[in-house]
Design a protein around this nucleic acid. Sequence first.
DNA 1: ATGTGAAATCTTGTATACAGTCTCCTAAAC
DNA 2: GTTTAGGAGACTGTATACAAGATTTCACAT
Lengths: 222, 222
Amino acid sequence: MTLGGAHQTLRDEVTRELRRRILSGELAQGERLIEDRLAAALGVSRNPVRESIRVLAAEGFIQVVPRLGATVARLSAEEGEELFDVRMAVEGLAARLAARKRTPASAERLRRVLEQAKEAVESGRLAEVADLNTAFHLAVGEAAGNSYLALMMKPMLQRAQWIFSQTAAVRGPHSWQEHLSLCEAIEAGDEDEAQARAVAHVAAARRSFLAAAGRRTKHPND
Amino acid sequence: MTLGGAHQTLRDEVTRELRRRILSGELAQGERLIEDRLAAALGVSRNPVRESIRVLAAEGFIQVVPRLGATVARLSAEEGEELFDVRMAVEGLAARLAARKRTPASAERLRRVLEQAKEAVESGRLAEVADLNTAFHLAVGEAAGNSYLALMMKPMLQRAQWIFSQTAAVRGPHSWQEHLSLCEAIEAGDEDEAQARAVAHVAAARRSFLAAAGRRTKHPND
DNA sequence: ATGTGAAATCTTGTATACAGTCTCCTAAAC
DNA sequence: GTTTAGGAGACTGTATACAAGATTTCACAT
């Protein structure tokens, strides 16, 4: 089959691959997803594809209308902006809890992701930078030691990454600095400061998003 | 087939029915979900059941291990408690935004749910009360006019309802009073007050949960 | 030209079939 | 009595088949 590498189930591979294609823009917003064609393109049967579609729909990447089929979700500029409000609330909480429940292991993990991101920035691998930035945010979520928070943050952050890639609003170095500063507050166990820095970080991302969105009158996929 | 009423797709019916059985406790925590048996019990084939399982897994009600099968998720007391932190952050935001963006239509909708809940309480239909309380919280989420927030709150609130039903920690009348008070703050457009009341409401629910959880040393399903 | 309607085509929804994996039980070996 | 190899049964993962609904096309009437 077309999908590479060792895997546990085709279904999981398909889910990851479709998610990746959506996040990367290979599958454009609003594009119709025809089960047969996806299955053929991925070299699998329709069954794993269908199950993947349900999962991605639950995560909000795909919109499904019974009997009419599935399309890649559309993100209006408003919906993109709305997400930042949610992120400030959720990631602010995550940072606070991460500071409260910090352990050497979780701090180590944050530092490691940060280090990888730094390397990727310096060697100019931009595609990886986006993934690693998301990974850092998720690591904060996991450091919070709240399983539901982590469960909820994963699709939220992927959606955020999607929005950014669609808007072409990248802000590599600034973002990395802010991550470092957040990491330090968490390590210091300063809950208020950690929350404040997380919220400020997301707010900065929002400004960057608004600037990039304002620069374009129309959406690239229109 | 066994599932009642008019429907769009079997898949959706199955998803709702399984979710209902989990929320109601008919399917106990940790219980193994065998596709064949569920399909037979619901009078459908395995396919719709499998797709439903993926969806419910994405919502966090079911845990799936590839090749080993699916089980109803287990909620430890800690995980139950953790959810309240998330709810305070998310529902606080929802209440704030609902107050900011209030419209006659959304206020009307909140009032209507509140009214139904009141009737259910007064006529002692306890099963409905839980559903209507959840519906009120969700209505606040929708009144916030933030599509992702609403998308995210739906499974979160269902999970909260699940936790409560499992703990048998019901607090009908108090809860209703607090809903009313929150509704008034939203109608008045007082963002700070709305957020404060929502947070206080969830905090009260947490205390009630902790009291009920402390009352039992063991879980009823153990 | 425009609108209408029915056939043909495409697509989804559901069921069934089969292959591979896991579990559990049995029985032999020590 | 305990342990381990092997095999039967059970269950999941994937593919294929078929039924029903949606869309397109094209002929025909206006």
